[in-house]
Amino acid sequence: MKKKRHLTQQQKRRIKANRQRRIDQRNDSQEVAATDSQNWLAGTVTGRFGQHADVEIEREQTLRCHIRRSIDSIVCGDRVEISTEQDSSGGMEGVIELVHDRQSLLSRPDFYDGIKPIAANIDQIIVVSSIRPDLSTHIIDRYLVACEETGIPAVIVINKIDLLTDEERQTVETELQVYRDLGYPVVYTSCKTETGMLPLQAVLNNKVSVFVGQSGVGKSSIINVLLPDADELTGAISDTSGLGQHTTTTAKLLHFPSGGDLIDSPGVREFGLWHIPVEQITRGFVEFRDYLGGCKFRDCKHLNDPGCIIRQAVEDGKITQARFDSYHRIIASLDENRPSHAETAPKS
Rank of each mutant, 00 (worst) to 15 (best):
S265I: 00
V286I: 15
T250A: 09
R289F: 09
A251H: 01
C295P: 06
G272T: 09
C295N: 09
R269S: 13
I276S: 07
G294F: 12
K296P: 08
Q280D: 12
D290R: 14
I263S: 06
C295A: 08
L273K: 02
G259Y: 02
V286S: 14
T250K: 05
G284R: 01
Q280Y: 04
F288N: 15
G259D: 04
R283S: 11
F285V: 11
S258A: 10
A251K: 01
Y291T: 05
G244A: 13
F297S: 11
P257Y: 04
R283G: 05
I263F: 00
L262T: 00
C295Q: 09
L253E: 03
R289W: 07
I263G: 01
G294Y: 13
T249A: 10
E270C: 06
F297Y: 15
G244Q: 11
S258W: 02
G284M: 07
T247N: 09
F288R: 06
R269P: 07
P277K: 10
G293S: 11
V286M: 12
D290A: 15
I263L: 01
P257Q: 07
K296F: 14
G293Y: 11
I281D: 06
G259P: 02
E287P: 07
F288G: 10
K296A: 15
P257F: 04
D264G: 01
L243E: 15
Q280M: 05
P266T: 04
V268I: 15
L262I: 04
L253V: 02
E270W: 10
S265N: 06
F288C: 08
G244C: 15
G244F: 04
D290W: 03
A251D: 02
F297A: 09
T250R: 10
D290G: 13
T249C: 04
T249W: 00
R283P: 03
